[in-house]
Write a protein that binds this DNA or RNA. Structure first.
Lengths: 203, 203
DNA sequence: ACAATTCTGGAATATAAATTCTAAAATTGA
DNA sequence: TCAATTTTAGAATTTATATTCCAGAATTGT
């Protein structure tokens, strides 16, 4: 049924998502997207409708194949404070800290006027991140502290990603994260703390 | 020497800065800027050169007449942790929390590709904010803790402003700020803490 | 009062960008 | 092999937007 595509969707979206991450939505010209993806406008429009459609697909790809990947890797069911710390500290090194930031955070700023995209795509992506962090905290420091610690870490995480894009992340910020986690570990390990530790009764 | 301007620069820049804050740089069309400022393109271009020049002026105006104003008000030479807390908590209420965020934070994301503007305008504006916060902390919690606390608050502050633009700021974040400051006060008031309190010997 | 200067309004233009279109190419199923 | 279908390439077009231009208005200094 017709001529088959000469490209792999995932490859194209991967290239596109990096262009959008670097240049932003408006700064990413169709010419640049052609160059980066290796496709011509015709194919791009045939496959994704228009530039906005390509962006939606690239954003969804970033969330699903990149952000969620990292969440699954570091913040799974068994994740500890160490894992959560490692998840955040990775933002300080390559390949993550390449100076272009996180597409979700960037989109939260640039796509703000597009209510539909903001609430329909950005909010869920942000929520996924914070919920995963909250899950770890709930298990590790217990419900008494998880809420406050979660909100604090949410602020710090978005701050990290903002400063990463501004190329203003430095070693002091890293130290602050490390210190934050040594404090969270104290919270976890304090004996008089009536947290409910996470158990797997069936195992 | 020629016809005088029919408008006040500060008024125009005030209107322009709000347009840029809402819509971003590219999203702010010249037509919208005309409407908001009450000037026509001719006058706008005569006064500021081009759209980029108007943006630079509006950004500088935001920093000087708005952001620095707030810093001077809350984070002066005598500012305490209470003042710093109030400075941050104001971000949760109107008129500050109008859902469009901070022009500096927004520009850090959107203007990232413009190296000249990023390093020449955004970096100094960000630095002004963090340095003022650090000054307060240095006096209040002492040099031993100021560095770490400063980095943590820098992250939290940028996180606040990011989430404010995404319309994702909620009461938990507010609680996290309040909790953070009750902890900083403990640090300040802890007797065994060998901080050097701020004195004015000449007074 | 008049020359010089600067500002204003808005139409005209230029520029840059996204989008559409068309002919050719590559495939499948009959 | 041929009809039907989809993709591809890139030129042509459209659209949106910034920018320029110019004639007229408003001022100052001489």
């Amino acid at each position: 049924m017709g001529r088959p595509r000469s490209f792999d969707d995932a490859d194209v979206l991967d290239a596109a998502m990096h262009v959008f991450r670097r240049h932003g939505y408006t700064g990413a010209s169709v010419a640049r997207l052609e160059e980066a993806t290796g496709l011509t406008v015709g194919s791009l429009y045939n496959a994704f409708g228009d530039k906005a459609g390509l962006f939606r697909a690239a954003f969804a790809h970033y969330v699903q194949a990149f952000a969620r990947q990292r969440l699954d890797h570091w913040l799974g069911e068994e994740a500890t404070l160490d894992d959560l710390e490692a998840y955040l500290l990775a933002l300080f090194d390559l390949p993550l800290n390449d100076g272009f930031g996180c597409l979700i955070t960037n989109a939260a700023v640039e796509m703000r006027p597009d209510e539909t995209f903001l609430t329909g795509a950005v909010w869920p992506a942000l929520a996924e991140r914070t919920e995963r962090i909250d899950d770890v905290l709930l298990r590790e420091v217990g419900p008494d502290h998880a809420r406050e610690a979660g909100a604090r870490l949410a602020l710090m995480t978005e701050g990290l990603l903002l400063l990463a894009r501004a190329r203003r992340l430095n070693h002091d910020h890293r130290t602050a994260i490390v210190a934050e986690f040594s404090r969270l570990r104290e919270l976890r390990d304090s004996p008089q703390h009536n947290r409910r530790r996470h158990h797997h009764p069936a195992e």
